[in-house]
Design a protein around this nucleic acid. Structure first.
Lengths: 188, 188
DNA sequence: CGCCGAGTTGAACTGAATCAAGAAACGTGG
DNA sequence: CCACGTTTCTTGATTCAGTTCAACTCGGCG
């Protein structure tokens, strides 16, 4: 099995040969240019993505401003989780900040795999658990922390984003204005 | 089946008779007084709780101050998810704000049920998904919002908490000081 | 009754936002 | 490959939301 997507997921939980084959069969590899929109606002998101190589950004509009909600880099998962899981439209948009190679799996395919294979259902549970832990982590970093602390948290956790993501987009990711982030950065 | 815990979980996903019986067999009903500590800080949390009736608060210490992380009321789940899912110690403490009736299930039992029954694994996945959606919701309410907006969000979402949770604990839940919450409340 | 923790209210202070003007970086077309 | 225009980033001055510190009020409980 030399499908990087399946290989990556197997790290979370072992899959039988059959499950691996079925998973590989429903996943599609996409080579996309920078700026490509993976998920549009206001629609039910039908796909979940795995970033083999590249970088995506999830954001939404709040009072005319873009608020960066999430950033997914190489080896991570990207998706409008609220829409994907709840099957409701959501305002989040996902687009690529770099030319990227991503794998896409549809909601339907995933449901089919969950129903068919117990080990896929387990993998799904573990992936969602992992996502929950990540979000809780990010939540903690935002909760009752100063702008400086939030910046330092990012520096400690995902320093590569500082190079790869434009400052303005990082600022709202960290819950501050671009000016504040610029000033904080200047003091280090 | 008149086990309220099993009944509540069945709302998320149907369970076979056997699964329901196995789940009922590993869950324990506890009647606890106000102030009882469900999860201690610094230990691996081995139990997840379902609040049949009552109210729990998850908090941790940050620079000597208590920060309220989560509140779980009747019909909801309480647990130190970071510790429970990652199997690592965590600083979060859970205690009861009211005399409560809760159901406890151990990590081991749950793993056993997951392995044994596909439909339990599915239920687990859906429960974690539901938790992820809730957390994302709370995260959005905190992200790039003013103190007033956060208060209004709570008012819209879980107004009952305003009556049942002491102001000081609510304030840090909303990411503000008790004084600020008091002032905001006065203006409405 | 009178204490004590929880909540309120006031005044001063401060971290971060806003408004505004430059400086650098970028990419596009000549 | 350079020149221009556009966007992104920086820097400064001002304003404002929210914190801090402190005093006072209220309600429950011994």
């Amino acid at each position: 099995m030399q499908n990087p997507f399946v290989t990556a997921l197997t790290q979370f939980s072992l899959l039988s040969e059959v499950s691996q084959q079925d998973l590989a069969a429903v996943s599609r590899r996409l080579v996309l240019e920078k700026g490509h929109v993976l998920v549009q606002a206001g629609k039910v998101s039908d796909y979940i993505y795995f970033i083999e190589q590249g970088l995506s950004r999830t954001y939404y509009l709040k009072e005319g401003r873009e608020v960066t909600d999430w950033l997914s880099a190489d080896g991570e998962i990207a998706g409008s989780i609220v829409s994907f899981l709840s099957r409701q439209p959501d305002g989040r948009i996902i687009h690529l900040l770099e030319p990227s190679v991503v794998w896409a799996v549809s909601y339907q395919s995933l449901e089919m795999l969950y129903a068919r294979h117990h080990d896929m259902e387990r993998l799904g549970r573990l992936l969602v658990s992992h996502g929950l832990l990540q979000l809780q982590h990010r939540f903690d970093a935002l909760h009752m922390a100063t702008a400086l602390e939030r910046y330092q948290g990012l520096l400690a956790n995902k320093p590569s984003l500082l190079q790869r993501v434009p400052l303005g987009m990082l600022a709202s990711y960290l819950g501050m204005t671009p000016e504040t982030l610029s000033r904080i950065r200047a003091q280090v």
